[in-house]
Amino acid sequence: MSVAASVEVPGWNAPTSRARSVLRVGMRVGQVVLFLAAVFFIVAPLGWLIVLAFSRGFSFPSLVPTSFTLSWWHTVLASPGLLHSVVLSVTIAPVVLAVSMVICLPAAYAIGRYNFPGKRFVLLSVFSINAFPRISLYIAMIPMLFLLNLMGTVIGVVVVQLIGTILFMTWIPATGFAAIPEELVEAARDAGASKVQVFWRVLLPLCRPSIAVAAVLSFLAAFDEAQGTFIVGAPNYLTMPVRMYSLVLDYPVQFAAVFAVVLSIPSVVLLILVRKHLFAGTSAAMHLR
């Protein structure tokens, strides 16, 4: 938490010592407020969810559960098809992420580093995917997927989940690539690097934080996707979020809480995995002008 206090703002004229101490107190207060907000809006609901998943009776007037139980977990873990859902979710989402990176990163590189005719159109169309209710897009895709024999197939599910990742995987790394000063590329060429070596040794490492952010968002977009997956995959391929939607309607809320906790595990694992890249990258990126 003390990181924020030591950040120097470039172009900031050194204030007087009094102004500086006021500033320091202000930043401290800001940190505390930020921390409390994070606890209130992020940690508390998650904690409540976890408590709920273990509670027998827990309704509005009481602030803590009246009694605890593991029965919801037994029911969920014993429910038929759960394992299938878990396997589907944790395999399809990474596949979607990988495919998305293969398709979108070269596009991001081109958009970020080059000018080409139709660039604005490409950006606009990528953006428009997220500018309308997704459900209408899925419905419009159904005839196409039927035509391609992809309805009810895993590939169909991958395709439909890809849609939600395109904006993140294109737009964020594209700005990352664009922010890299041309001198850094020229200096590398000058030092003897071919264009390919420049990409691997300079552009990609400098773009790593943007790609990491895009990867987290894309993974979650794919992992949480329920509407399109249901339309295309049901009844053969019910991923965890799809299953959860039906459970929320049919079972007590605790049942859904257990599911939500289980659903959060991959996200937490992913965040822990990419944390290093996010932070190492951010500091490197901040050193760029």
Binding site: E183, L184, A187, R189, D190, A191, G192, S194, V202, R208
Partner: peptide, 19 residues
């Protein structure tokens, strides 16, 4: 091409690779 010229450039902007 640039990478095979026996020249080296010192740039105007600070151009060290930040990573």
């Amino acid at each position: 091409p640039v990478e095979r010229r026996p020249t080296a450039m010192l740039f105007q902007q600070l151009s060290l690779w930040p990573h």
